[in-house]
Protein backbone atom coordinates (compact mmCIF):
# COMPACT_ATOMS: atom_id res chain seq x y z
CA UNK A 1 0.00 0.00 0.00
CA UNK A 2 1.41 3.35 -0.99
CA UNK A 3 1.47 6.35 1.31
CA UNK A 4 -1.36 7.94 -0.61
CA UNK A 5 -3.56 4.82 -0.55
CA UNK A 6 -3.05 4.50 3.19
CA UNK A 7 -4.06 8.12 3.66
CA UNK A 8 -7.18 7.74 1.49
CA UNK A 9 -8.25 4.53 3.27
CA UNK A 10 -7.94 6.33 6.57
CA UNK A 11 -10.02 9.24 5.24
CA UNK A 12 -12.69 6.82 4.03
CA UNK A 13 -12.86 5.10 7.42
CA UNK A 14 -13.21 8.46 9.13
CA UNK A 15 -16.11 9.65 6.90
CA UNK A 16 -17.82 6.29 7.38
CA UNK A 17 -17.65 6.58 11.16
CA UNK A 18 -18.90 10.18 11.10
CA UNK A 19 -21.81 9.33 8.76
CA UNK A 20 -22.83 6.32 10.85
CA UNK A 21 -22.64 8.22 14.14
CA UNK A 22 -24.71 11.14 12.89
CA UNK A 23 -27.34 8.86 11.34
CA UNK A 24 -27.69 6.83 14.53
CA UNK A 25 -27.93 10.01 16.63
CA UNK A 26 -30.72 11.45 14.47
CA UNK A 27 -32.67 8.18 14.40
CA UNK A 28 -32.29 7.73 18.14
CA UNK A 29 -33.48 11.28 18.75
CA UNK A 30 -36.57 10.64 16.66
CA UNK A 31 -37.17 7.29 18.33
CA UNK A 32 -36.90 8.62 21.86
CA UNK A 33 -38.15 12.19 21.50
CA UNK A 34 -41.23 11.80 19.30
CA UNK A 35 -43.03 9.46 21.75
CA UNK A 36 -42.52 12.13 24.42
CA UNK A 37 -44.92 14.40 22.52
CA UNK A 38 -48.22 14.64 24.38
CA UNK A 39 -50.30 13.43 21.39
CA UNK A 40 -48.03 10.56 20.35
CA UNK A 41 -50.16 7.75 21.74
CA UNK A 42 -53.16 9.01 19.77
CA UNK A 43 -51.18 9.54 16.57
CA UNK A 44 -49.65 6.11 16.80
CA UNK A 45 -53.05 4.58 17.29
CA UNK A 46 -54.71 6.39 14.39
CA UNK A 47 -51.86 6.50 11.81
CA UNK A 48 -49.61 3.56 12.56
CA UNK A 49 -52.01 0.85 13.57
CA UNK A 50 -50.47 -2.44 12.46
CA UNK A 51 -53.69 -4.38 12.71
CA UNK A 52 -55.62 -1.92 10.52
CA UNK A 53 -52.76 -1.84 8.02
CA UNK A 54 -52.76 -5.60 7.59
CA UNK A 55 -56.55 -5.71 7.33
CA UNK A 56 -56.87 -2.96 4.69
CA UNK A 57 -53.69 -3.48 2.67
CA UNK A 58 -55.02 -6.15 0.24
CA UNK A 59 -58.07 -4.05 -0.63
CA UNK A 60 -55.90 -0.98 -1.10
CA UNK A 61 -53.67 -2.94 -3.40
CA UNK A 62 -56.69 -4.00 -5.39
CA UNK A 63 -57.91 -0.40 -5.65
CA UNK A 64 -54.43 0.53 -6.84
CA UNK A 65 -55.10 -1.57 -9.93
CA UNK A 66 -57.51 1.16 -11.03
CA UNK A 67 -54.72 3.72 -10.72
CA UNK A 68 -52.50 1.52 -12.81
CA UNK A 69 -55.24 1.06 -15.40
CA UNK A 70 -55.96 4.78 -15.76
CA UNK A 71 -52.23 5.40 -15.89
CA UNK A 72 -51.76 2.73 -18.54
CA UNK A 73 -54.19 4.21 -21.01
CA UNK A 74 -53.41 7.86 -20.22
CA UNK A 75 -49.65 7.63 -20.69
CA UNK A 76 -49.64 6.61 -24.40
CA UNK A 77 -52.37 9.16 -25.18
CA UNK A 78 -50.28 11.85 -23.46
CA UNK A 79 -47.15 10.86 -25.38
CA UNK A 80 -48.94 11.05 -28.72
CA UNK A 81 -50.86 14.27 -28.05
CA UNK A 82 -47.80 15.89 -26.46
CA UNK A 83 -45.69 15.11 -29.50
CA UNK A 84 -48.37 16.42 -31.87
CA UNK A 85 -48.66 19.66 -29.90
CA UNK A 86 -44.88 20.06 -29.92
CA UNK A 87 -44.80 19.58 -33.70
CA UNK A 88 -47.73 21.95 -34.15
CA UNK A 89 -45.86 24.65 -32.25
CA UNK A 90 -42.84 24.21 -34.50
CA UNK A 91 -44.83 24.20 -37.76
CA UNK A 92 -43.27 26.65 -40.21
CA UNK A 93 -45.63 26.68 -43.17
CA UNK A 94 -47.99 29.69 -43.15
CA UNK A 95 -50.96 27.39 -43.85
CA UNK A 96 -50.30 25.80 -40.46
CA UNK A 97 -50.29 29.12 -38.62
CA UNK A 98 -53.63 28.36 -36.90
CA UNK A 99 -52.09 25.13 -35.65
CA UNK A 100 -49.21 27.07 -34.09
CA UNK A 101 -51.59 29.44 -32.35
CA UNK A 102 -53.63 26.48 -31.16
CA UNK A 103 -50.52 24.72 -29.84
CA UNK A 104 -49.37 27.82 -27.97
CA UNK A 105 -52.82 28.46 -26.49
CA UNK A 106 -53.14 24.81 -25.50
CA UNK A 107 -49.87 24.70 -23.59
CA UNK A 108 -50.53 28.08 -21.94
CA UNK A 109 -54.00 27.12 -20.77
CA UNK A 110 -53.35 23.63 -19.49
CA UNK A 111 -50.09 24.50 -17.81
CA UNK A 112 -51.74 27.52 -16.23
CA UNK A 113 -54.70 25.77 -14.56
CA UNK A 114 -54.25 23.51 -11.51
CA UNK A 115 -54.76 19.86 -12.46
CA UNK A 116 -57.52 19.44 -9.90
CA UNK A 117 -59.47 22.33 -11.47
CA UNK A 118 -59.20 20.83 -14.92
CA UNK A 119 -60.34 17.49 -13.51
CA UNK A 120 -63.35 19.16 -11.90
CA UNK A 121 -64.31 21.31 -14.86
CA UNK A 122 -64.07 18.53 -17.41
CA UNK A 123 -65.07 15.68 -15.12
CA UNK A 124 -68.25 17.37 -13.90
CA UNK A 125 -68.85 19.75 -16.79
CA UNK A 126 -69.00 17.43 -19.76
CA UNK A 127 -71.14 14.67 -18.22
CA UNK A 128 -73.39 17.55 -17.14
CA UNK A 129 -74.39 17.87 -20.79
CA UNK A 130 -76.63 14.88 -20.14
CA UNK A 131 -74.67 12.38 -22.20
CA UNK A 132 -76.00 8.81 -22.29
CA UNK A 133 -74.07 5.91 -20.76
CA UNK A 134 -71.25 5.08 -21.14
CA UNK A 135 -70.35 8.59 -22.27
CA UNK A 136 -71.01 10.10 -18.87
CA UNK A 137 -68.33 7.95 -17.24
CA UNK A 138 -65.94 9.86 -14.99
CA UNK A 139 -63.21 7.52 -16.24
CA UNK A 140 -63.45 8.98 -19.73
CA UNK A 141 -63.58 12.64 -18.74
CA UNK A 142 -61.17 12.30 -15.87
CA UNK A 143 -58.72 10.66 -18.21
CA UNK A 144 -59.26 13.44 -20.73
CA UNK A 145 -58.46 16.04 -18.07
CA UNK A 146 -55.22 14.26 -17.18
CA UNK A 147 -54.30 13.81 -20.85
CA UNK A 148 -54.87 17.48 -21.66
CA UNK A 149 -52.89 18.75 -18.68
CA UNK A 150 -49.98 16.37 -19.02
CA UNK A 151 -49.80 16.76 -22.81
CA UNK A 152 -49.14 20.44 -22.32
CA UNK A 153 -46.09 19.74 -20.13
CA UNK A 154 -44.91 16.80 -22.21
CA UNK A 155 -45.17 18.93 -25.37
CA UNK A 156 -42.88 21.56 -23.86
CA UNK A 157 -40.33 18.88 -22.96
CA UNK A 158 -40.44 17.48 -26.49
CA UNK A 159 -39.91 20.99 -27.79
CA UNK A 160 -36.84 21.48 -25.65
CA UNK A 161 -35.63 18.13 -27.00
CA UNK A 162 -36.11 19.30 -30.59
CA UNK A 163 -34.17 22.48 -29.78
CA UNK A 164 -31.38 20.41 -28.24
CA UNK A 165 -30.53 18.74 -31.56
CA UNK A 166 -27.68 20.74 -33.05
CA UNK A 167 -28.58 22.74 -36.16
CA UNK A 168 -25.70 21.15 -38.06
CA UNK A 169 -27.71 17.91 -38.04
CA UNK A 170 -30.49 19.69 -39.87
CA UNK A 171 -28.06 21.22 -42.32
CA UNK A 172 -26.49 17.84 -43.06
CA UNK A 173 -29.88 16.23 -43.64
CA UNK A 174 -31.14 19.08 -45.81
CA UNK A 175 -27.95 19.06 -47.86
CA UNK A 176 -28.70 15.48 -48.87
CA UNK A 177 -31.98 16.59 -50.43
CA UNK A 178 -34.35 15.52 -47.65
CA UNK A 179 -37.52 17.58 -47.19
CA UNK A 180 -38.20 19.49 -43.96
CA UNK A 181 -40.65 16.80 -42.92
CA UNK A 182 -38.21 13.99 -43.58
CA UNK A 183 -35.50 15.85 -41.68
CA UNK A 184 -37.81 16.16 -38.70
CA UNK A 185 -39.01 12.56 -38.80
CA UNK A 186 -35.78 10.74 -39.61
CA UNK A 187 -33.06 12.91 -38.11
CA UNK A 188 -34.29 15.44 -35.54
CA UNK A 189 -37.11 13.64 -33.72
CA UNK A 190 -35.31 10.36 -32.96
CA UNK A 191 -32.48 12.30 -31.35
CA UNK A 192 -34.83 14.75 -29.63
CA UNK A 193 -36.91 11.98 -28.09
CA UNK A 194 -33.85 10.16 -26.86
CA UNK A 195 -32.56 13.36 -25.26
CA UNK A 196 -35.71 13.90 -23.22
CA UNK A 197 -36.36 10.34 -22.00
CA UNK A 198 -35.23 11.11 -18.42
CA UNK A 199 -37.38 14.24 -18.19
CA UNK A 200 -40.39 12.38 -19.55
CA UNK A 201 -39.77 9.62 -16.99
CA UNK A 202 -40.30 12.25 -14.30
CA UNK A 203 -43.58 13.23 -15.96
CA UNK A 204 -44.68 9.59 -15.85
CA UNK A 205 -43.96 9.43 -12.14
CA UNK A 206 -45.93 12.63 -11.55
CA UNK A 207 -48.79 11.25 -13.63
CA UNK A 208 -48.87 8.05 -11.59
CA UNK A 209 -49.46 10.14 -8.49
CA UNK A 210 -51.94 12.56 -10.06
CA UNK A 211 -54.21 9.73 -11.19
CA UNK A 212 -55.47 9.90 -7.60
CA UNK A 213 -57.04 13.28 -8.35
CA UNK A 214 -59.73 11.44 -10.33
CA UNK A 215 -61.06 10.16 -7.01
CA UNK A 216 -62.68 13.59 -6.62
CA UNK A 217 -65.03 12.92 -9.52
CA UNK A 218 -65.92 9.29 -8.81
CA UNK A 219 -63.55 6.39 -9.49
CA UNK A 220 -62.80 4.42 -6.34
CA UNK A 221 -59.06 4.23 -6.78
CA UNK A 222 -56.59 3.81 -3.97
CA UNK A 223 -56.93 7.26 -2.38
CA UNK A 224 -60.71 7.05 -2.39
CA UNK A 225 -60.60 3.47 -1.09
CA UNK A 226 -58.33 4.58 1.75
CA UNK A 227 -60.87 7.31 2.50
CA UNK A 228 -63.63 4.74 2.65
CA UNK A 229 -61.65 2.67 5.15
CA UNK A 230 -60.88 5.77 7.18
CA UNK A 231 -64.59 6.48 7.62
CA UNK A 232 -65.36 2.84 8.24
CA UNK A 233 -62.65 2.19 10.81
CA UNK A 234 -62.26 5.74 12.14
CA UNK A 235 -58.52 5.35 11.54
CA UNK A 236 -56.00 7.07 9.27
CA UNK A 237 -53.69 4.10 8.86
CA UNK A 238 -55.14 3.20 5.40
CA UNK A 239 -53.73 6.51 4.10
CA UNK A 240 -50.30 5.46 5.31
CA UNK A 241 -50.86 2.12 3.57
CA UNK A 242 -51.73 3.94 0.35
CA UNK A 243 -48.59 6.06 0.67
CA UNK A 244 -46.49 2.90 1.09
CA UNK A 245 -47.99 1.41 -2.08
CA UNK A 246 -47.19 4.58 -4.02
CA UNK A 247 -43.64 4.61 -2.74
CA UNK A 248 -43.10 0.99 -3.76
CA UNK A 249 -43.80 2.09 -7.35
CA UNK A 250 -42.39 5.60 -7.46
CA UNK A 251 -39.11 5.21 -5.60
CA UNK A 252 -37.59 2.67 -8.03
CA UNK A 253 -38.96 4.66 -10.97
CA UNK A 254 -37.45 7.88 -9.62
CA UNK A 255 -34.11 6.19 -9.00
CA UNK A 256 -34.18 4.84 -12.55
CA UNK A 257 -34.97 8.27 -14.01
CA UNK A 258 -32.11 9.80 -12.02
CA UNK A 259 -29.81 7.06 -13.26
CA UNK A 260 -30.79 7.80 -16.88
CA UNK A 261 -30.29 11.51 -16.30
CA UNK A 262 -26.85 11.00 -14.78
CA UNK A 263 -25.81 8.72 -17.64
CA UNK A 264 -26.92 11.30 -20.18
CA UNK A 265 -24.93 14.01 -18.43
CA UNK A 266 -21.84 11.81 -18.57
CA UNK A 267 -22.35 11.11 -22.27
CA UNK A 268 -22.75 14.79 -23.10
CA UNK A 269 -19.45 15.59 -21.45
Amino acid sequence: MTRRERYEAQQRRRSLVIAATSTITVLAAIYFLVPLAPGWAKVQQSFFNGETLIKTFPKLLEAFRINVMIFAWSAPAIAILGLLIALARDAKSPALFPLRIFGAAFTDIFRGVPVILTVYLIGFGIPGLGLPRPWNSPYIWGTLALVLTYSAYVAEIFRSGIDSVHHSQRAAALSLGLSERQVMRDVVLPQAIRNVVPSQMNMLIALQKDVSLLSFIGPVEIFRQAGVFKSLLANFTPYVGAAIIFLIVTVPATRYADHLMARQMRERR
Binding site: S168, Q169, A171, A172, A173, S175, L176, G177, L178, S179, Q182, D186, V187, P190, Q191, R194
Partner: peptide
Protein backbone atom coordinates in the same frame (compact mmCIF):
# COMPACT_ATOMS: atom_id res chain seq x y z
CA UNK B 1 -21.45 18.67 -49.30
CA UNK B 2 -19.19 17.33 -46.55
CA UNK B 3 -18.68 19.34 -43.38
CA UNK B 4 -15.74 19.95 -41.10
CA UNK B 5 -17.57 18.35 -38.16
CA UNK B 6 -18.76 15.26 -40.12
CA UNK B 7 -22.37 15.72 -38.95
CA UNK B 8 -23.17 12.03 -39.16
CA UNK B 9 -26.52 11.10 -37.65
CA UNK B 10 -25.52 9.61 -34.27
CA UNK B 11 -28.62 7.43 -33.89
CA UNK B 12 -27.95 5.51 -37.10
CA UNK B 13 -25.26 3.06 -38.13
CA UNK B 14 -22.86 4.06 -40.89
CA UNK B 15 -24.92 2.02 -43.34
CA UNK B 16 -28.19 3.67 -42.29
CA UNK B 17 -26.55 7.10 -42.51
CA UNK B 18 -25.62 6.39 -46.10
CA UNK B 19 -28.92 4.79 -47.11
CA UNK B 20 -31.29 7.36 -45.60
CA UNK B 21 -31.27 9.97 -48.35
CA UNK B 22 -31.27 7.56 -51.33
CA UNK B 23 -34.21 5.73 -49.79
CA UNK B 24 -36.19 8.89 -49.10
CA UNK B 25 -35.21 11.02 -52.07
Amino acid sequence: IVFQSFNLFPHMTALENVMLAPRRV
